[in-house]
Structure formats: C-alpha cells, structure tokens
Design a protein around this nucleic acid. Structure first.
Length: 491
RNA sequence: CGGGGUGUAGCGUAGUCAGGUUAGCGCGCCACAUUUGGGAUGUGGAGGCCGCAGGUUCGAAUCCUGCCACCCCGACCA
C-alpha cells in the first residue's frame, strides 16, 4: 500500500478514484465500465441493503424476483420509456458458442440466433407490468407492493466506480394501486423512506423535491427525488421515487374491476436506490486521510490496536481486552482486534484511518500499568485516554456521537454552500466561485431550463418540497415565479 | 460516441523522440535480525509474454497498423 491520497483541494476526482481503490471498496474489472465490489465495500452495501430492506418491509412491501432478460418487444410498449432507455441497452442476440474452425477459440454460433432478441434489463417496469397483468383483476388484488434487489445494465458512455457503472446493483420497488391518490401517497412515502435512510444511516442531509419535466423518469408522470451535496460542490441524485400514473397499466393493459363494478386501469409507482449511494457516502464525509464512515454503516466500528514488544506482552494485552471485546459484541458493536505482528502501530493507525473505522482503541504497556486505553475517533482525529472500567459504554456513546457529528458537519457544509441569488450574473458567478446549491427563481419553462443548462452546465436538481411560496422574477427571463428551485452542477 | 492523454513486476515509475548486451529504480512481498505510543531499519531473496494481435528489421519496450482498457474534457445518465 503506497502512502497518501491526492488532496481533495488539488484533484477531487483523483482523490475519489484512489480512495475507492485504496480503501478496498472496489476496483475495475476486465469488462469495460464494470466494477468488482470488494469484500470491504460490499459489507457496507450489505448494511445499506439490510437497513433499507427493513424499512421496505415495515411499510408493507415484500420482495420478489423478476428475470434479467426482457423481450425486446416489451420495451417498445411505453413510448417515452423506450426513448429514455433504448440508447443504452445491452442486447442478447445468440444463445450458443462453438469452437472456431481454425482453433483460435470460441465464436458465436451463427445458427443459434434468437428469433426475438432479449434486452438485459436497464430497469424492470416492462417485465413487471407484463406480469402484473396476470396478477390483477379486482380491487381485491390491490395494492401490489413489491420490491426486488437486482442488478441492471445501462450502457453508459462514461463510467466511474460506484457513481456510474455499466452494471450496477440496486433495488426497484414496483407498486400498483386502485387510485391515483393512493399511488401518489406511496410515491411520497418511499421518498421519505429514502430521505430518512440517507439522514439517519448515511448521515447525509438531503433535499426532498420534485423533478422538472425535463429531468423526469422516462414513463413517469412525476419524479420525486432526494438530492445531496458533495464536498466539491456538485449535487448527486441519491434516490428517486416515481408516480407512473396509468402509463404502464395502459401500455401493458393492466385493468381491475372496482367495488362499483367499473373497469379501470391501475395506478403505478416505482422507486429505486443503487450502489451509487456508496459514492455519495464516500464523497460526503471522507477527508484527505481516507474514508470517514458513519458508525451505523461501518463494517468495523471499533478496531483495537495492541502496542507490544514480544509475544508475552501481546498475550497480556490480549487477555486484558477480552472483557472489552465481549462487552462490545454484546452491545452489537463490530470490533476487530488487530494482533498482527510485522505492521507497526503507526502503520495500522494510518490503515484504519484510510478505511474509515470510526473508533480506534490503542493499548500498550503504559495503559496496562494505568488500567487505561487510548481512544481515537476518526471524524475529529481527537485522542483521549479512558479508564478501562466502563470503556464499552463510553465507546457506545462515542459511536452515537460520531454518527451525529458527521451528519451535523455535512449539514453545516450544505448550509454554507447553499446560496440564494437574484440575477443571472450572480448565478453564474456563484457557480464558478463557490459551487454548491443555488436557489433561484425560474419561470417554469423547459426552454429557460435548457438555456441555463447549456450556458452554465447547471441543472434544476429539483423543486424542493419544502420551498416556501415566494413571489419573484425568473433570473433569466424576468417572468414571474412563485417559488425558488434548486440548481447545481451535478454528477 | 467526438477531442486529448496514458498503458513497463501487486502499486508508482526510468528507458520510447534517435531500435542494439542480462529492461533499471522506489514502495510492497518472502526470510532473518534489531524494532514497535503516528506509515521502522539492516542484510539477503523472489517477482517482467514492456496492454493485446499483427507487421517492418539481422535485432523491437522503442518504428508501423489494428484492437482493448483506463484517465481528463464534451454529448448521455441513477
């Protein structure tokens, strides 16, 4: 392991790429744009999955699994959906290989051509709605509240570990309802689940909002989203929840008979978060020394580093810390005792900082004499000597404190980098000099939105749900506006 | 997909312009010794189809052609 990361202030992008790799989260694979998620990184993803999955279950959803392949014809049934995804689909055309006649390896068997090509799912609305047609006949069959954990493929032009990969892992919820109101309520409920997860687990403050028509999901009536601010002042869309109206029900002919005996199309939603959340987690909190992980998602919450000379001293320390290890585990805290010889304590300190372990406990001869331990927290780098008595409780409190502190820190950062502007000049100046969220008045037209995007690369991230009504003038056209919208340059 | 750049040991690199012994260095790795409270030191050792495939040449990491991957800037996007 080579020392040091690039500095965030010098090359944010290089810092991110190297951090992901040096902290053992993920690496590039032999396949373009696809990543290998390494055990340490995957453990974080598993923790995210578990927390989210519990929240989905609490809100009445159950998991199911739909196929990876989608018949090509399915994709053409919802017009705007095709338009949104057609350009980035991987297509399966054959089902067999054979040995090359010249012995050079294997080739695609031209005789094994599929009569209908299969699309590797970029998202599962079509295959799921074609299934829902068979599941739903009556109002008694509604609502259908299903989620699936899956991988999807989108043939992106430019990829970055976690932020945009050709294949990525995610969950996609797909629900069907008898009324529009109920579907809208579901859409909003799941947005709130995502926001709560981001804030309580990832320690990531997010803006809840609605996308403009331009930024809406292909096939949705409304797209709700959570938007987070990264340390370089760029926005990251962290999750979306779509109100699909009756679009997919109509495309796949999913109708139900109501209590009153009337036939109608059902109302749908879909919502998802992906391994992109890993990117958000990394970029939101980490520093030039490495990852800073919120305790609730850290694979290792506490690492114990013994400082010793010779096996005898190590044995003494090992014995001494057993009660602590046991007590931490009984509190559900994941703890690692790093008794490796051959790496110096200093080396280990740097290593666990790189990997973002929230709390480090060091115990050496000095502590053995005094009945103490040195406890260092990753978020502030603060070190304190504690008595071994009652140390587990101290650490438990410290973990909660760290979780809270990094959330506060992210919130303070966001507040400091969210600015209201009144004119277009001010807007442009702000984006260049102090990148971040910019709240400004907009006349509500796609033309103005497009123009701003073209001229400044900033997009409307969302119309915040909590935006207060405020009379103003569009920064570009001067036309009246009734509330501010959230602009930023985005990932 | 367009423009620019880069591929030499696990990682970082010298050498490429101007072809010529056995491809050099640092980190890491292995062994031993001394060390260990912020990335230890010494000695010895292992590790290379020079991105891949063709070509030119007596001879290619070096020149030519094609391909692949990664990085940066655009267009596209969770």
């Amino acid at each position: 392991m080579s020392k040091g990361l690039p500095k965030r202030s010098e090359d944010y992008s290089a810092w991110y790429n190297e951090l992901v790799q040096k902290a053992d989260l993920a690496e590039n694979s032999p396949v373009r744009g696809c990543m290998v998620i390494k055990p340490y990184g995957y453990t974080i993803w598993e923790k995210m999955q578990r927390a989210l999955d519990d929240m989905f279950k609490e809100t009445g959803h159950t998991n199911a699994y739909f196929p990876l392949f989608i018949p090509k014809s399915f994709l053409s049934k919802e017009a705007s959906h095709v338009e949104g995804f057609a350009k980035e689909c991987a297509v399966v055309t054959h089902y067999r290989l054979k040995n090359a006649p010249d012995g050079s390896g294997v080739i695609v068997d031209p005789e094994a051509k599929l009569t209908e090509e299969l699309i590797v799912r970029p998202t599962s609305e079509t295959v799921i709605w074609s299934t829902y047609k068979n599941w739903i006949q009556s109002y008694r069959d509604l609502p259908v509240l299903v989620n699936q954990w899956a991988n999807v493929v989108r043939w992106e032009m430019r990829t970055r570990l976690f932020l945009r990969t050709t294949e990525f892992l995610w969950q996609e919820g797909h629900t069907a309802h008898a009324t529009a109101d109920e579907a809208v309520a579901e859409t909003k409920q799941m947005l709130e689940v995502y926001a709560t997860f981001a804030e309580d687990w990832m320690a990531l403050p997010v803006v809840r909002g609605v996308k403009t028509a331009n930024e809406r999901f292909a096939g949705a009536e409304d797209t709700y989203c959570i938007e987070a601010l990264m340390q370089d002042g760029k926005a990251l869309q962290a999750g979306t929840s779509h109100f699909l109206g009756q679009n997919f029900a109509k495309a796949f002919d999913v109708q139900y008979t109501s209590k009153e005996g009337k036939l109608d199309y059902v109302w749908g939603t879909s919502w998802g978060v992906s391994t992109r959340l890993m990117g958000a987690l990394i970029m939101a909190h980490s520093d030039d020394e490495g990852l800073v992980l919120p305790p609730k998602l850290a694979p290792i919450q506490v690492v114990i580093v013994p400082i010793f000379k010779g096996t005898e001293q190590l044995a003494t320390i090992t014995e001494k810390i057993q009660p602590l290890v046991k007590e931490l585990k009984s509190k559900g805290i994941s703890v690692k005792f790093d008794n490796r010889d051959g790496n110096s304590p200093g080396w280990k300190f740097a290593e666990y900082e790189l990997k973002g372990v929230p709390v480090r406990v060091a115990i050496g001869p000095r502590d053995l004499e005094n009945g103490t331990a040195e406890v260092a927290r990753r978020d502030t780098k603060e070190k304190k000597v504690y008595s071994m008595d009652n140390l587990a409780s101290q650490i438990e409190g410290l973990l909660a404190d760290i979780q809270q502190n990094i959330y506060q820190k992210a919130q303070t950062f966001r507040a400091a980098n969210t600015t209201k502007v009144e004119t277009y000049d001010e807007f442009k100046q702000m984006l260049d000099e102090k990148p971040g969220f910019v709240l400004a008045h907009w006349d509500g037209t796609s033309e103005t939105e497009e123009r701003i995007k073209e001229e400044t690369k900033a997009t409307i991230r969302c119309i915040p749900l909590d935006a207060p009504a405020e009379e103003g003038k569009c920064i570009v056209t001067g036309k009246p506006s009734s509330r501010r919208v959230l602009f930023a340059r985005a990932y």
